[in-house]
Amino acid sequence: MDPNVRRQILLDNYQHPTGHGLKEDSSYIKINTNNESCIDNLDIMYKIKDGRIEDICFDGEACAISTSATSIMIQKLIGKNKEEAQRILDNYEAMLDEREYDKELLEELNAYDEIYKQPNRKKCALLPFESLRKIINKL
């Protein structure tokens, strides 16, 4: 990905993230995600209906990488069922681990395709997906 395009995607999603702000709605499942580095701290809420992710929202304090990744993840996951969400998760992880993955499927998540060069930031990019891992079996 062109570095300028990448930066613009990340910056847009960091400064104007999708799904920012938690909802007072008990039909959401709330998951707190603490980065192992013990700094980033996000609450991510999922609404699941009929086996699909109907909505996701989040709030918390996190770095530009975690926040933007959460925003893009939300855009990618809304409307997805278990198999679709799992495919996105698997391919995203494969990309971060420098394995073969489906580039087309990940779309804007490709913006993190060079994050492996900064191992300490890989955790940040993975952070929102830790929450997906926790709810995926509820789909």
Binding site: S37, I39, D40, E61, A62, C63, A64, T67, Q118, C124
Partner: peptide, 8 residues
């Protein structure tokens, strides 16, 4: 700016 971004 988040502190970690500043450190990076």
């Amino acid at each position: 700016v988040f502190s970690q971004d500043t450190a990076v």
